[in-house]
Simulated scan of single mutants.
Amino acid sequence: MPSETPSDAPATPDSSPQHVSAFAGFQRIASGPAAEVIAGLRATAPPPDVLVRVFDDATGTRLDLDLRPQAADEPSPAPTAPATPPPRAVGRPRLGVVAREVTLLPRHWEWLNRQPGGASVALRRLVDEARHVHRERDALRAAREATYRVMTEMAGDLPGFEEAARALFAGDGKQFQLLIDPWPEDLKTYLQQLSAAAWNPS
């Protein structure tokens, strides 16, 4: 089994897919901006006996979509009246800051509170520094997880799946390419696209 376990959690609501790929069976039938692809699929109405799967190209997540032609015409829920915004406080703008709970030990809070600007400023600085330092590692992991999600959906029953998954998480690009080479052409091309950043620079 793979040495790492990808996160299968769905994308958060504020991270809508921008670019997607659609497959009918193993054939890629569309690829492009999400709105255009979904509208095209609804317009063409694929036969009911054809399994159409749509993937977010950024995460490899399969999207749960209603592709019936009438789905595009169904009215959206009536928007609720927005609440009256509170008076704007004097000071710097929030710049998109989101308040969420953070659980730390007392010694962590003590250290954070001693930093210039307080705990919030120190945490933001630490996160930004970590994002910069680990950018390549994070991109590598994200590419492996996206590739594995699509493999699990599309290739779980294909020969060499387990071995290809192990090669993917071991960073063995040559072995991975060798194992997926006999797979359907469109699927193989898509996995190569998703896994482009999944290999160690060395």
Rank of each mutant, 00 (worst) to 15 (best):
E162W: 02
G160A: 04
P182R: 06
R166A: 15
A34V: 02
D138E: 14
D64F: 03
S16T: 13
R135K: 14
R137F: 00
A89P: 06
R42V: 07
A196L: 12
V97N: 03
A24L: 11
P82S: 01
A83F: 11
F55Y: 10
T44L: 12
R166W: 05
A9Y: 07
S16M: 13
P46K: 05
Q27V: 14
V52A: 05
A99S: 09
L51I: 15
P116Q: 09
D66A: 02
Q27T: 15
L105V: 13
V54R: 05
D138T: 04
E185A: 13
D8A: 07
R125T: 12
T59W: 11
F176H: 12
R131Q: 14
P82Y: 00
S202T: 08
A130C: 07
W183G: 03
E4R: 15
V102G: 04
D56H: 00
D73A: 14
R131C: 08
R62C: 12
A122V: 01
D172P: 06
L67S: 04
A196Q: 13
L105N: 11
R62N: 06
D64Y: 01
G118Q: 09
L158N: 01
V37A: 04
A99K: 12
P82C: 00
E153C: 13
T103Q: 09
G173N: 01
Y190V: 00
A9L: 15
A139T: 02
W111T: 13
D56N: 09
A170L: 11
Q18F: 06
S76Q: 11
A81W: 10
P86S: 02
